[in-house]
Simulated assay, not measured.
Amino acid sequence: MRLRHHSGRVVHLSHGTHERPARDLPAVVEHLDAYAAVRDRLAVETLGVSLWLPPTLAAALAIDGRSRTRLRAEIAARGLEIVTLSGAPWAEGGDEDPVTPDWSEPARLEYTLDLARILTDLMPEDAVRGAVTTIGLGPRAGWDAAKQKASARILSRLSAGLAEVAWHTGRAVRVGFQPEPGFVLDRAEAIVEAFGRLDRERLGVSLDLAHLACTWQGPVAVLDQLAAAGIAVIRARIAAALEAVDPIASAEALRGYVEPGHPRPVTNPAGDQAADLAEALRDFPPGPWRVRCHIPLHTPPAPPLTATTEVWQAALRHLTGGAHPGTEYLAVESSAGGAGAEIAYLMGFLGELGLSPPAEACAAH
């Protein structure tokens, strides 16, 4: 979905779902049918979507031009468009490798470049660039000097690989690293330090605004620090985290958000972290807490719990309020059933910020 910024530039809004990744091309097409139903409910001509393709499927598509051509035709036939692909998660269950490589391992490089090659064939005719998202280098625990050295070599190969993709296709793909608590890229200071050694032309950050809230740093201050260091916000995912001002008084309500098998990390302003909400409810670190559990933008949790709405709204105001948009890509993720209402709510807020409705947006340049 294309929106026009007051500068005349286009900002792309893409929708993703919580569905499990498609394991083969027919399953991808089924997902596209679900997105088309959302487009119909919203009554828009074109809906931007962000797909997550697991590594085995990405590797197959990257070498099969006919399958990419078919997939592009299926996307266009449903009134959808793709300018970003998600490479932040990894495989989920089944016969996929359960190990999640970080950016010190070649497997992460191969996966990301596969996605970049696929994306150049899936983008609309008038699009000259796109983006792939990925993890914030890797978990901070165990990230030693050897991993840092290996990562530096692999990230240099990533830049070279992206340059090669652009040379062969005439389309640029940038990679956005997603900061989050517990990863090498977490707080703004760590991001700025890491990018002092990285290619800032092709690499940037992909901010999840719920993850940003869980760092307890002010969104405007973070965005200003990144801008001052010349670090591009390639994509911003609009999301709210769960917040408990008084965790002890909110314990019963918080237990309703515990989901076995789906860890929901908890942070507080002092920098304490719990790997999962269930763990935090056993140990009760000092409050307040923020929980990495995405809350629907249009439906706040029942009191005494709240959502980090002020964080994502402040970030969007800052990203859209300048002479030029602070990011080219926005994304929102929701369940397929609730997507229409959530996107409609978000579109209303973006309209208040001066972003034109899709029918008024010009083609991307």
Results as ranks from 00 to 15, higher is better:
Asp272Ala: 11
Glu259Leu: 13
Ala323Ile: 12
Leu42Arg: 07
Lys149Cys: 05
Thr267Gly: 03
Pro269Gln: 13
Cys293Gln: 06
Gly93Leu: 08
Leu85Ile: 11
Thr56Asp: 14
Gly130Cys: 04
Asp199Tyr: 02
Glu30Gly: 14
Pro286Thr: 14
Leu281Pro: 03
Arg70Glu: 14
Ala302Ser: 14
Ser159Phe: 02
Pro179Ala: 04
Leu277Glu: 03
Leu61Trp: 10
Asp102Asn: 13
His168Leu: 14
Ala145Gln: 09
Pro55Phe: 00
Ser151Phe: 01
Glu125Tyr: 05
Ile75Val: 15
Arg9Phe: 02
Leu119Thr: 01
Val332Arg: 03
Thr17Ser: 15
His211Asn: 14
Pro288Trp: 03
Pro139Ile: 03
Arg117Ala: 09
Ala76His: 10
His365Ala: 13
Glu279Ala: 12
Ala59Trp: 06
Arg290Lys: 14
Ala88Met: 10
Leu53Thr: 05
Ala145Cys: 02
Pro288Asn: 04
Leu316Val: 09
Ala229Phe: 10
Arg187Gly: 08
Thr320Lys: 00
Leu3Phe: 07
Glu30Ala: 15
Phe284Ser: 06
Gly337Lys: 13
Ile75Ser: 03
Ala229Met: 12
Val11Phe: 00
Tyr329Met: 09
Ala77Arg: 15
Val332Gln: 08
Glu19Arg: 13
Gly351Glu: 03
Arg202Met: 04
Phe177Glu: 01
Ile238Asn: 01
Thr134Asp: 03
Val44Thr: 15
Ala336Ile: 13
Leu207Glu: 00
Leu47Trp: 00
Thr215Gln: 10
Leu223Glu: 05
Ala341Glu: 15
Val291Pro: 04
Tyr329Ser: 03
Thr215Ala: 09
Ala251Met: 06
Val132Ser: 01
Glu110Asn: 12
Leu185Ile: 07
His365Asn: 12
Tyr35Gln: 02
Ala59Phe: 03
Arg66Ala: 15
Gln178Trp: 00
Leu185Phe: 04
Tyr257Pro: 01
His15Leu: 15
Trp52Ala: 01
Pro301Ser: 12
Leu51Lys: 00
Arg317Cys: 09
Leu305Asp: 01
Thr309Asn: 04
Val165Tyr: 04
Arg292Tyr: 04
Val165Ala: 06
Asp144Lys: 10
Thr133Phe: 02
Ala146Asn: 10
Pro21Lys: 06
Val266Cys: 09
Leu297Phe: 06
Thr46Pro: 02
Arg171Thr: 07
Gly16Ser: 15
Tyr111Gly: 02
Thr133His: 05
His15Glu: 12
Ala37Lys: 10
Asp208Thr: 05
Glu92Met: 07
Ala270Ile: 08
Asp24Gln: 11
Ser335Arg: 15
Val258Arg: 04
Glu259Cys: 07
Pro325Ser: 12
Ser67Cys: 04
Leu297Met: 10
Arg200Pro: 04
His168Trp: 08
Met347Thr: 09
Gln178Met: 11
Ala307Leu: 05
Thr299Phe: 01
Arg264Ile: 07
Lys147Gly: 06
Leu203Phe: 05
Gly218Ile: 00
Leu80Asp: 01
Phe195Ser: 04
Asp224Val: 13
Ala43Thr: 05
Asp24Pro: 08
His365Leu: 13
Gly94His: 12
Trp167Thr: 14
